[in-house]
């Protein structure tokens, strides 16, 4: 049976066509080889990116690692490189991040909720969506210019922690909105209908079902946006963050009535990336070591935050199977 088929095969019957088959086969071989070569090129490109990241981390560890010590965290910047530390910088970063979170998280989640759950399909919604896309594409430094013109000079808020926090909050707002929308969209409609069927109002439905079920995705977005904000330098330089600060903002908690004070909001500040920028732009080698140490701390913070975000996303994707 098989023999009969083979003898009937026209390509085998003539010599010329067997050469043709050879040509086809060799062309297949060449194309398979191209496929394989392209895969290797892809792997190499991937490897190159990852090696760059690794080189960056290793260089920071090698140069700055030995400089990271308890004293480095508890000293103010100084003219002597070996005595200088990042106390005012990390406290400043912490304060600015607090304001940023308070601004970006509620605003971003509320905006995402509105666009996914409440908005009607009309030109206003389209316009808002278009604006969010554009906002995400605006260079970060223009946020700094806006803040300098509006917050610092227009509203007289000065070059303060409050100004910086609000600037970064508005800067990362699109990230929070987009990730919130994605998380809300993944909640199936049957949940909404079930809730309405039981007589809940829209807000009750959102409050008790949509928000809890999408909290993992929202949290991921919040962490990623904060990790972006903590490394942001340019807009804060633009609004006039100082590079040399040898004092701390007053504590937000008092021992006497009314126990809290908001004076820290109006204080001048510096943050970790600005401190690093200041050190890296000096000609002396010793300050570059400080810059590397600050960079290492900054990098570790962002990598840990991103790691947590990846983990939460992974966990939630596995746990929730609608």
């Amino acid at each position: 049976m098989a023999d009969a088929e083979q003898t009937n095969d026209p390509t085998k019957s003539k010599v010329g066509e067997s050469i043709l088959t050879d040509l086809v086969l060799s062309s297949i071989r060449v194309r398979k080889w191209i496929d394989f070569a392209f895969m290797v090129v892809g792997l190499l490109a991937l490897l190159f990116s990852l090696i760059t990241l690794l080189a960056l981390i290793l260089d920071l560890v090698r140069t700055g690692g030995p400089r990271v010590s308890w004293d480095f965290f508890t000293s103010f910047p100084s003219r002597k490189a070996m005595k200088a530390g990042i106390l005012s910088a990390w406290v400043g970063s912490l304060c600015v991040m607090a304001v940023t979170s308070l601004c970006a998280i509620p605003l971003g989640i509320a905006a995402g909720l509105y666009l996914e759950e409440y908005s009607k399909k009309n030109w206003i919604t389209t316009f808002i969506e278009l604006n969010i896309v554009n906002l995400a594409g605006v260079p970060s430094i223009t946020f700094g210019l806006m803040a300098l013109g509006i917050f610092v000079y227009g509203l007289g808020m000065g070059q303060s922690i409050l100004t910086a926090g609000l600037t970064l909050g508005l800067l990362v707002l699109p990230i929070v909105i987009v990730t919130t929308r994605e998380a809300i969209r993944s909640v199936p409609n049957s949940i909404r209908e079930a809730s309405f069927a039981l007589g809940s109002s829209k807000w009750q439905m959102v409050r008790h079902h949509i928000l809890p079920y999408s909290s993992g995705g929202i949290l991921t977005g919040v962490i990623i946006s904060l990790s972006r904000a903590i490394g942001e330098t340019a807009p804060l330089i633009t609004i006039g963050a100082l590079t040399f600060i040898a004092f701390l903002p007053p504590s937000p908690v008092n021992e006497t009535f009314p126990f809290v004070n908001f004076q820290w909001l109006t204080e001048p500040f510096t943050v970790l990336p600005i401190q690093m920028f200041n050190w890296v732009s000096r000609p002396e080698k010793e300050f570059h070591v400080n810059a590397a140490a600050t960079g290492l701390i900054l990098l570790m913070m962002t990598l840990v935050m991103n790691g947590i975000a990846i983990y939460i996303r992974y966990r939630f994707r596995r746990k929730l199977k609608w």
């Binding site: 990116s49 260089d59 140069t63 490394g231 990336p273 690093m276 570059h288 810059a291 900054l298 990598l303």
Partner: peptide, 21 residues
């Protein structure tokens, strides 16, 4: 996600990397 970490590194750290590495 590992590749996306490249975009998470603060840009001032990249500046350091470009200048001194």
């Amino acid at each position: 996600p590992v590749l996306e970490l490249l975009a998470a590194v603060p840009t001032v750290v990249y500046g350091y990397f470009a200048l001194l590495f």
